[in-house]
Each structure stands twice: as structure tokens, then as C-alpha cells.
């Protein structure tokens, strides 16, 4: 197996992705033995069915990509995704509440989601492109306190993806078993390696095949 394979969440989140695109994504994930596929919640059951005979996990995004829906709605969307077969959940924090310094509300929301999936992996997307350094640190601390299994940099729909600077700040907040997922803008093996060397345990990318083949992808995510 390629050393990169198990780091990769093979990702397709654009609004226009068709059922055939999702099936192809799953086939690729099987072929390259990626850790998971990451899809929008309407495709979780399709992905689960496509991957039923394999080790590849299914990961669903929640409150994506703005993170601005109500907490009750995020919890309900999560419950539905788990029911449809999601193994892991990538939720977006409420960036507006963070900017309003309503830190308790941000924390409660993450806790509410974690509480319905105690034994499954919850990744919390901070969307670092909109945050300054102190906000990245604060958001990391809140997510970890609230029970996140991973803190994750980006949705891929913001103004930029991950940066090594983001990762260094997030690392300084890490406690216990919490890990970091870098996502957005990781298109080749060199960049992937740079993140892995910094301690990143998972990579969210649409360029997984380019990464394992040692080429560069033109994808935005």
C-alpha cells in the first residue's frame, strides 16, 4: 500500500456532483485503499452501498460549508447521516458565533453533536481562512473541550485552504488523543508530506490519486 493512502479522505463535495461521480469516487477509494470517502450528506447511503464490501469508511459533512444553520438542525443532519451509514462526521463550527465571541454557544453546539455519536469520529472544521491566529487557537481549544476527535482546517469553500501556519497554531492547542486534519489546497505529494511531517494525521483532498502517484492535480480542493 502507498504510504499516503491511509491518510487520505478522498473528497467530493461540489454541489453538482452526480451519482455517477460519487460511484467513481468510491471505486477510486477502493482501488487506492484510501482511508475514507468524504461526501455531502445526500450521498452517504449511496457511498455506503458502493463501499459495502470494503474497508473504506464513509465520512459526511454537516452544516456545510457555512456552519451557519441552527444547532438543532446540525444535530438532526448528523443523526440522519449516521443512520444512513456514515462512519465519521465533519461538521463546520458556527463561525459567526465565534466572531461574536459567543464561545459557550459554539462549544454547546459541538457537544450536542458529539453526544449523539460518542463512539464515532467527529472532526470539527474551523475554517481558518476567516480566523486570525488567536481565533484559530480559541476555536481549537473550544472544539477539543467539546469532545472533537479531530480539529480540521478548512471546508475548501472559503477564501483559502490549509496552511502550515494554521497547523502550528492548532498543534499548540492539542490535548490527549485529538488529531489534526488538514484540508483544502493539498494537491501533490510534497505538500502532503509537509503536513504529515508537521504531525497531521488526516488529509482532506480531491487529489488523492495525484498524491499517491507523485503527480500534481489541478483540483481546487
Amino acid at each position: 500500500m502507498n504510504p499516503f493512502s491511509q491518510y487520505i479522505d478522498h473528497t467530493l463535495l461540489k454541489a453538482t456532483a452526480s451519482t455517477l461521480d460519487i460511484i467513481k469516487l468510491c471505486e477510486e477509494a477502493k482501488q487506492y485503499q484510501f482511508f475514507s470517502v468524504c461526501v455531502n450528506s445526500c450521498y452517504v447511503s449511496l457511498a455506503k452501498a458502493s463501499l459495502s464490501e470494503s474497508q473504506v469508511k464513509v465520512c459526511s459533512v454537516i452544516g456545510f460549508p457555512l456552519g451557519a444553520m441552527s444547532t438543532a438542525t446540525k444535530v438532526s443532519e448528523t443523526a440522519q447521516a449516521l443512520k444512513d451509514g456514515a462512519d465519521e462526521i465533519d461538521m463546520v463550527i458556527n463561525v459567526g458565533f465565534l466572531k461574536s465571541k459567543a464561545f459557550d454557544t459554539v462549544e454547546k453546539e459541538i457537544k450536542a453533536i458529539k453526544s449523539i455519536m460518542p463512539n464515532k469520529v467527529l472532526k470539527v472544521i474551523l475554517e481558518t481562512c476567516y480566523l486570525d491566529d488567536s481565533e484559530i487557537l480559541k476555536a481549537s481549544e473550544i472544539a477539543i473541550k467539546a469532545g472533537a476527535d479531530f480539529i480540521k482546517t478548512s471546508t475548501g469553500f472559503g477564501t483559502r485552504g490549509a496552511s502550515t501556519h494554521d497547523i502550528k497554531i492548532m498543534k499548540s492547542a492539542l490535548k490527549g488523543d485529538v488529531k489534526i486534519k488538514a484540508s483544502g489546497g493539498i494537491r501533490d505529494a510534497e505538500t502532503a508530506l509537509e503536513y504529515i511531517n508537521l504531525g497531521v494525521k488526516r488529509l482532506g483532498t480531491s487529489s488523492g490519486i495525484a498524491i499517491v502517484n507523485g503527480t500534481t492535480s489541478k483540483s481546487d480542493y
Partner: peptide
């Protein structure tokens, strides 16, 4: 707005989100 901006959540999620919004 519901299912915003990608429209890619499940129909059930969109329904829940809409009903929650009405309640709010």
C-alpha cells in the same frame, strides 16, 4: 435558507431545517 448553499443535504434534513426555522 435551508440546504444552503450547496443543496446537498438529504431531503429529511431540509425538512427538519425548514420546520426548525418556522419554529424559530
Amino acid at each position: 435558507v435551508v440546504g444552503f448553499p450547496l443543496g446537498c443535504s438529504t431531503t429529511k434534513s431540509k425538512i427538519y431545517e425548514a420546520q426548525q426555522a418556522l419554529e424559530d
